[in-house]
Simulated scan of single mutants.
Amino acid sequence: MSESAPATTELTSQYSTQVAGDLERNLKEQERLSGEIEALQGQLDALRRDHTVLLNIQQVLGTQATAVTPTTAPTAAVPAPRKKAAASDGRPGTRKSTAPAGKQGGKQTGKKAAPKASTTRSGPTLVDLVRDHLAGQKEPRSAAEVATALGGQHPERTIKTTVVRTTLEGLVARNQAQRTKQGSSVFYTTPDAGEGAAASEDSSRQSD
């Protein structure tokens, strides 16, 4: 009986040591998998944000393409009243036909004058505001930071972060801005500012 008790105690200690080691390896494996899952989730979130930005750019480009076509419509419709007026000169009811033609001409001239008035009253576009703001910054800025700054400078305008992000991506596509990623965050800067920052880093390294 006395010999079996130490043997049982030794086996118990061995099992306890083995179980403790298995638990430690299990926890390390959980931490490793959790880190990989977080990294993959960050990549997935970044891809989803890029997808949303690309969709917004596609929509903006589509609206700009459709906005150009109506400008040609009034010019094509202008000769129509002239033909009707010329054809009605030889008919007895010329007075009745000329009056609607005058009204139509007045409406068309009013429609043409409306865009001119709107262009003179409108201020700088959002693209100009975003580009000028980036040019005045020495460090990269996110779309939310740019939208907040412009909203404070121009409280009369409704500036949304999604629209600012779309505008920034448009500037990147035209090589008027640079896009950098820090983790899952996206920052923007002007090409000149990016080159100046790189040059300063190179000079600091050479001096060291």
Rank of each mutant, 00 (worst) to 15 (best):
P115Q: 07
H133F: 12
G90E: 05
T72A: 15
P115V: 05
A113S: 13
P140A: 01
R141I: 02
N56S: 12
T66G: 01
E139G: 00
L54A: 14
S88N: 05
T71V: 07
Q108Y: 09
A77I: 08
A113M: 11
R82C: 02
T125R: 14
P70V: 08
T72H: 11
V60Q: 12
L134T: 01
G102I: 10
V130D: 10
G110T: 14
A77Q: 15
A85Q: 06
P115M: 04
T125C: 07
G110R: 06
V68Q: 09
K116V: 15
Q58S: 11
K112H: 12
L134D: 11
K107E: 11
T75P: 00
P140N: 01
K138V: 00
D128P: 00
T75L: 15
K107T: 04
V78R: 14
K103E: 08
A87Y: 06
G105C: 06
A99K: 04
Q137P: 04
G90I: 03
D89L: 08
G106A: 07
P92I: 02
L134K: 15
L129P: 02
I57L: 15
K96E: 12
L126W: 03
Q59P: 00
L134S: 10
K107W: 10
T94F: 03
P100R: 09
R121N: 10
N56M: 11
L55S: 09
A114Y: 08
S142Y: 09
G93Q: 06
P115W: 03
D89Q: 13
T98Y: 05
T75M: 06
R141W: 03
T98N: 04
V127M: 06
T120A: 06
R131N: 05
T94I: 04
G90N: 03
T119C: 02
T109L: 11
T72P: 01
P81W: 12
L134N: 12
T120C: 02
K107C: 01
L129G: 02
P74Y: 11
A86P: 01
T119P: 00
T120E: 15
R141N: 05
G123S: 13
Q58D: 05
G136A: 07
G110V: 09
T120N: 09
T63N: 13
G62T: 07
Q58E: 08
A114E: 11
S88W: 03
Q137S: 12
T119H: 14
L126V: 05
K96R: 07
T109S: 02
P74D: 04
P79W: 15
G93C: 03
V127S: 12
H133Q: 06
L61C: 07
S122H: 10
G102S: 04
P79C: 03
D132R: 09
R95Q: 03
L126I: 07
G102M: 12
R95M: 00
V60M: 09
L61H: 14
L134C: 13
P81K: 14
L134V: 02
G106W: 12
G105E: 08
L126Y: 06
K112S: 05
A114M: 04
R82D: 00
A86S: 11
S122L: 13
A87S: 06
L126H: 06
V130Y: 08
A65G: 07
V68C: 04
T120K: 14
R131D: 12
L61N: 15
G106K: 12
A117D: 13
K107Y: 06
R121T: 12
D89F: 07
G93D: 03
L61V: 04
N56G: 14
V127Y: 10
V68G: 01
P74V: 08
G106D: 11
A86F: 07
